[in-house]
Nucleic acid binder design. Structure first.
Lengths: 339, 339
DNA sequence: TGTTAGCACTTTAAGGGTGAGAGTGCTAAT
DNA sequence: ATTAGCACTCTCACCCTTAAAGTGCTAACA
C-alpha cells in the first residue's frame, strides 16, 4: 500500500528527528518543530496509523514513536534527502586515492579507512572473490635451497606470494622447465578451473610431480585464504550514544571482530546492487540487534573491486553514510577504470 | 620492607580469591575457606596492615579488600603458584607451529592467535623492528611496462613486495644492470644504514637515478610501515565480568584498536625481559585503568622475533596467562632456532 | 605479646511508595 | 477532516527504610 504524502512527510520527520536527538518523537514535537499548521491531535492519528502499518513502534504507552526497521529502509530508499559532500571532503577522498592507487590492496585498505573517517562509524570491507580471476603467470623465485617463492599473477593485477618446498636436487633449469610446464597448463584459466583440474602425469613430467602438487597447494591456500577483510574503527559505535548497555556492545563487537561474520554479512546478496541497507532485528540475526549495515559493491572494468559497508546503530546518519559510500565508490571506480 | 610469611600467604589468598570470584575478599572468607586455624579478627589486623603497606584497598568502609596494582605485581613475581599447561594444550601449540612455520609472518600471526585462544583474553603482538636487518638481495620483476615488483630479501628471511615505477623505455638488460648496481651498493647493509645513505650519481649511472630513487622510496615505505601489529579477540574482555560500564569498555577498545598505542605499550621497555607485567592505573595511563598487560619478547638465534602480550582486566588469570606466554615462547624459540 | 570474642559503626543494595511529567487514545464539537 | 480537552498509562527521579556485610576497636585471655 502506498503511503499518503502527509504520512511520508511525517515519517521522514520522525526518522530525521530521531536520528538527530535519539529521543522518541512525540506528536507535540512534530507540530512544534516541523508542522505548525496542524494540531498535535491530527499528528497523533497519523502516527497511530503509521504504527498500525508497521513503520513506528512505541517503547511504552506514554512514549513517543521510534522508527521500525521498515521505516529506516523506506527512509533510505525513498524519504531521505540526499546529502552532498563538501568540496573539502571530496578533495580529501580524491587525494588519498590518487596518491596510492598502484595496487588493489592499498586501494582496498584505504577505502575502508576513508569511509570510517568520513562517516565516523565502523567500516568494513571484503575484497572481491578471486574465483573468476584468470591466471596470467606463475613464476618461481628460488629463495633457499629447498624453498621457492611462487608469484601468482592474475588478470586482475592481483598478486600474491607464497612459499613452497622445492626438492633440493632440482637445479635452476629444471625449475624453469617445471615453471614452463605449469604455466602452459594453467595460464588463462580461472582459479576455480585450476583447483578442480585433474592432471595425468605422463612419464616425462613425473619428476615435477612434487613441485606441481606444491603449487596446486599454494594456489588453493591463496584461493581459500582469500577474501581479505578490513575493519576500521571497531570502537566507534561507542561514540554514538546508542550501545549503552554491555550486551549490545558485546553483540556489536562479536560481529565486527569476526572475519567470518563480516564476510557473511557483506557478501550475502550484494551483487550488483548499488546501496544496500540491512537492519539487525529479531528477523535478521546476522547483524546485532538495532544495528544497521549500509553497503555497496564497487566495480571497475566490469569486475567487482570489493564490497564496503558502514555498520553502526540503526539510528544512523544515513544521509552522510550513503553520500560517503556513493562518492568513494564513484571516485575509486573512475580512478581504476581510466587505465 | 620484607613481608612476613603470613602476610605473604594472606596476600596470595586475597589475590587468588579475588581473581576467582571477582568479589572483595573479607576476613571471614579467608578464615572460612583458607585458614581455619586463626580467627577473623587476626586476619582483620593483617589485612589492615597490608592495606597500610599499599597492597590492598577497600571500595568503602564495609567492603572486603581488593588487591592494588602493587599486589598484582608482587603476586606475579613472587606469590603466584606457577601453573603447568596440560599435555593437550602443549600439543595444540606444537601442532600449530609445526604445521606452518615456514615464514615469520605466519608464525607471528599464529602466535597471537594461539595466545588469545588458550588464555581467553585479548592478545596483541608487535613484530620485531627491522632496523637491524641486513639486506641480502633486491630483485626486480617486471610486471607491467612501467611497473616493477621489487622483492626485498633480508638475513632474517623476511621478505616483502612493493611496486615501483620504472621508466617504460628501460629494457630488461638495463633493468638488470640497475639491479646489479643497487645490490652492489646496498647488500649486507642494515635498513638503517641504507636509509641514511647519501649516494652521488656519477655520470655513468645517472640513467638509473629514477629507478634508484624509487627503490629507496620503496625501502623507506617498507621500513616505516613496518612493525606489524596483530590483535586477536578484541571483544574477549566482555566475557570476564569486569568492564561492566561503558567507559571502561571505551578505554579498553581505544587502546586495543589503535596500532600506535599497541606498539607504544608493547615496545616500551620489554627488551630482554622475560615476563613483564604492567597495570593500568592512575599512575600509568597508557593502559586502560584496571587493565593489565602481561608481555614477553621472544628471541631465536640471538634475534628478536616479536613481542607478544595479553591484555585484560587486572583481575586476570595470571597463572594461566604466564604459563601460556612462557610455553608459546619456548616452543616458537625452539622451532625457529633448530635450523 | 599475639590472639580472640564481642560489639558499635559504616556503607551498600534492594525494595517500596510517591509525585511530577510526558505522551497517548478517545470523544465530542467544529 | 480536524481539533480541544481530558482521562489514562507509564516512566523516572527521589526518598525512605531495612537487611546484610564487613570493618575497627576494645577488653579479655593464653
Amino acid at each position: 500500500m502506498e503511503l499518503s504524502e502527509r504520512k511520508k512527510k511525517i515519517l521522514q520527520i520522525v526518522v530525521d528527528d530521531y536520528i538527530d536527538t535519539a529521543m522518541p518523537v512525540s506528536s507535540k514535537t512534530i507540530t512544534q518543530k516541523y508542522m505548525q499548521n496542524v494540531s498535535s491531535a491530527t499528528i497523533r492519528a497519523e502516527l497511530s496509523a503509521l504504527e498500525e502499518l508497521g513503520y513506528l513502534t512505541q517503547l511504552h504507552t506514554s512514549s513517543g514513536r521510534v522508527p521500525s526497521p521498515e521505516a529506516y529502509k523506506l527512509y533510505v530508499s525513498d524519504l531521505m534527502v540526499k546529502e552532498k559532500l563538501t568540496k573539502k571532503e571530496l578533495d580529501y577522498i580524491k587525494d588519498i586515492f590518487l596518491k596510492k592507487a598502484d595496487n588493489i590492496e592499498s586501494v582496498f585498505k584505504n577505502a575502508v579507512k576513508v569511509i570510517s573517517e568520513l562517516t565516523d562509524y565502523t567500516s568494513i570491507g571484503v575484497s572481491p572473490s578471486i574465483k573468476e580471476d584468470r591466471l596470467r603467470e606463475i613464476r618461481f623465485f628460488r629463495f633457499k635451497p629447498d624453498k621457492a617463492l611462487v608469484l601468482i599473477v592474475t588478470d586482475q593485477k592481483l598478486l600474491k606470494d607464497n612459499f613452497i618446498d622445492v626438492p633440493e636436487e632440482m637445479n635452476t633449469e629444471q625449475l624453469d622447465e617445471a615453471s614452463a610446464f605449469i604455466n602452459k597448463l594453467f595460464v588463462s584459466k580461472t582459479f576455480q578451473e585450476i583447483c578442480s583440474m585433474e592432471v595425468d602425469f605422463d612419464e616425462s613430467f613425473s619428476g615435477y610431480k612434487t613441485i606441481f602438487v606444491n603449487v596446486i597447494e599454494a594456489l588453493k591456500t591463496y584461493f581459500s585464504a582469500r577474501e581479505d577483510v578490513a575493519v576500521e574503527g571497531q570502537d566507534k559505535m561507542l561514540r554514538h550514544a546508542d550501545y549503552l548497555d554491555v550486551d549490545k556492545i558485546k553483540d556489536f563487537l562479536s560481529v565486527v571482530t569476526s572475519k567470518d561474520k563480516i564476510i557473511d554479512v557483506l557478501t550475502e546478496d550484494n551483487k550488483g546492487i548499488k546501496i544496500n541497507v540491512k537492519i539487525g532485528s529479531n528477523g535478521y540475526e546476522k547483524l546485532p540487534k538495532d544495528s544497521s549495515l549500509v553497503s555497496a559493491t564497487y566495480t571497475a572494468n566490469g569486475k567487482e573491486i570489493g564490497t564496503y559497508g558502514v555498520i553502526g546503530p540503526s539510528r544512523m546518519d544515513y544521509q552522510k553514510v550513503v553520500a560517503v559510500l556513493e562518492n568513494v565508490g564513484r571516485i575509486i571506480e573512475s580512478i581504476l577504470t581510466e587505465r
